[in-house]
Design a protein around this nucleic acid. Structure first.
Length: 265
DNA sequence: ATGGCCCGTAATACGGGA
């Protein structure tokens, strides 16, 4: 089974790119981030026509996540609240950044991690606190689910191989030691591993390039879109690849899809 | 060295992204 993640930076603006890509690749599950549309206006029909089921958790203008699936999903949950409770989730579920579901026995959590703006800012503080809630959420999920994929736009490059030019980036948003630490503590320390690194150890592979400064042409990118998987899924993983083709199109998203392939158990 | 572009909303600017 193939589980893809793609921050599309507006699903309505990128609709043709996404449907073309799905037609060509036929993944089992596509996890979208930054759909930027309320649920009532989500372009469901385009996916229905391709034979995909659509599950959305959106908001006006900002954020928004969605699951696009070949077959119906089980136990779809929106936000942190169903897992950590309203009291803890309240402050964070205003922003639609979390949707989860089960497919073929694998729990898949689709995340759009807060960007954080700049180190020390209010939004940065929000990002750090958001990870504490994520930790609580994933810890709870793992209590009754051994097959887990946590994928999405993490807005953090885990190590220096994941940045085109890491020098001087310690104070840069997405690559500070504090952000790497909170990602490690909240996700990796639960026993989840970056599936991409099972197959590729060298640097220079990226999933996001700034729109400015011809960053894509110059391959000045970052690998910030990841699949963190439990040991059982890590063992079953047979490929994890970044498809740079959609980033070459006219009016692309600044992110490109990453595809995890898992063999049957 | 700096900043550079693109999104939606609303409006012909601005907040936000990363």
């Amino acid at each position: 089974m193939k589980v893809a993640t793609w921050n599309v930076n507006s699903v309505r603006t990128r609709l043709q790119h996404v449907t073309d890509w799905l037609s060509a690749h036929e993944v089992d599950l596509l996890c979208l981030q930054e759909t930027k549309v309320v649920d009532a206006d989500f372009p469901r029909d385009a996916f229905t026509e391709l034979g995909y089921e659509t599950y959305v958790y959106g908001q006006k203008s900002y954020n928004g996540v969605a699951l696009i699936s070949r077959s119906p999903l089980e136990e779809v949950t929106m936000g942190f609240a169903p897992v950590v409770g309203e009291a803890i989730a309240q402050e964070f579920d205003d922003q639609k950044r979390v949707i989860a579901a089960t497919l073929n026995g694998v729990r898949v959590v689709d995340l759009y991690v807060p960007n954080g703006s700049s180190i020390g800012s209010e939004k940065y503080d929000y990002k750090m606190r958001w990870f504490q809630v994520l930790h609580t959420y994933l810890e709870s999920v793992l209590k009754n689910q051994s097959d887990l994929v946590v994928c999405g736009d993490f807005n953090i490059a885990l190590d220096d191989r994941d940045i085109y030019n890491p020098e001087g980036k310690a104070k840069h948003i997405m690559s500070s030691p504090q952000e790497r630490e909170v990602l490690t503590q909240s996700v990796l320390d639960l026993g989840l591993a970056d599936a991409f690194r099972k197959f590729t150890s060298e640097g220079g592979y990226f999933s996001w390039w700034d729109y400015r400064a011809a960053a894509f042409r110059r391959n000045m990118g970052w690998r910030i879109d990841h699949h963190y998987v439990s040991p059982s899924v890590y063992e079953r993983a047979i490929a994890c690849t970044i498809d740079t083709e959609p980033r070459k199109l006219e009016k692309p998203s600044d992110h490109t899809p990453v595809v995890l392939e898992i063999r049957d158990p």
